[in-house]
């Protein structure tokens, strides 16, 4: 089966004043990929993601989604942020359905999607709870369900588990893999955690230190579910670590 390019990034450059953050970055994301982007802390990973969805204006270059300029109003893109981005005044189910408010779907279809994703992330019991009544991992699950409920063409995740403890992180990583396998959504997952990148991605893109360029992209064909103690896993993790070193 031929691979279809979902996202094309061509010569992307981003400057903040005189500070060059992204330097002539070019790469493709294939439809259905779970592409993990790793790089040193502060190398501009978030800048890259924010440039992709027009939160920041790019200095030069081109970003295309399905061959067209990225437009979050007309294209179905979801973004899961580093921090908690749930709406505190909405209940869990209202939060999950929030993105559907703006989609041309029937009420029955919206309800069905909310039920489906509440079920998948295990929050049916907490549907009437408000975010202030939830734990950090539950909040991230709400964000994940909300993003997947829109059934996006492209899902961007910016270190979504960075602030969670290791047990919760493992749990949510498994949930993400399950959802990705079910929906075949194209996912761009930003992280500075090499183990997380090797555990999740079917591809791993390694960025250099600032000014950021793409060092290389590795194909990760380790079987799932992945075992972090498996020698092949450790070997790939070490390979990524060596590639990421800038000192």
């Amino acid at each position: 089966m031929s691979e279809r390019v979902k996202v094309q990034v061509r010569n992307l450059t981003k400057k903040f004043g005189d500070l060059l953050v992204l330097n002539d970055v070019s790469f493709d994301v294939i439809e259905g990929d779970l592409l993990c982007v790793v790089g040193p802390t502060g190398c501009g990973k978030t800048t890259f993601l924010n440039s992709l969805v027009n939160i920041y204006d790019i200095t030069s270059g081109e970003i295309l989604l399905d061959g067209q300029k990225v437009n979050t109003k007309t294209q179905n893109i979801a973004y899961i942020f580093q921090g908690n981005s749930t709406m505190p005044w909405l209940t869990v189910e209202e939060n999950v359905g929030f993105g559907l408010l703006y989609k041309p779907l029937s009420a029955a279809e919206k309800k069905e999607r909310i039920e489906k994703y509440l079920e998948i992330v295990g929050l049916v019991k907490y549907r009437k709870y408000y975010p202030k009544q939830l734990s950090a991992s539950m909040l991230q699950r709400v964000s994940i369900a909300r993003a997947f409920a829109t059934e996006p063409e492209l899902l961007l995740m910016d270190e979504p588990y960075g602030q969670l403890d290791i047990e919760l992180r493992f749990k949510l990583e498994d949930e993400l893999v399950k959802l990705w396998q079910m929906t075949k959504t194209t996912v761009l997952f930003i992280t500075h955690n090499i183990e997380e990148a090797v555990y999740l991605g079917n591809k791993i893109m390694i960025l250099s230190n600032k000014p950021t360029t793409v060092k290389t992209t590795l194909i990760n064909e380790l079987p799932r579910p992945r075992d972090i103690a498996d020698p092949q896993f450790i070997a790939l993790r070490n390979q990524v670590t060596d590639l990421i070193k800038w000192w």
């Binding site: 939160i55 979050t72 979801a78 973004y79 709406m87 408010l101």
Partner: peptide, 25 residues
């Protein structure tokens, strides 16, 4: 701002951000 960005990503237009995010927040 993270909530505003999240709603924008989910497809909300400026008027909708004002009515569904800014006012309740």
């Amino acid at each position: 701002p993270e909530i505003i960005n999240a709603s924008r990503m989910l497809g909300a237009k400026e008027r909708q951000i004002f009515t569904t995010i800014v006012i309740p927040a």
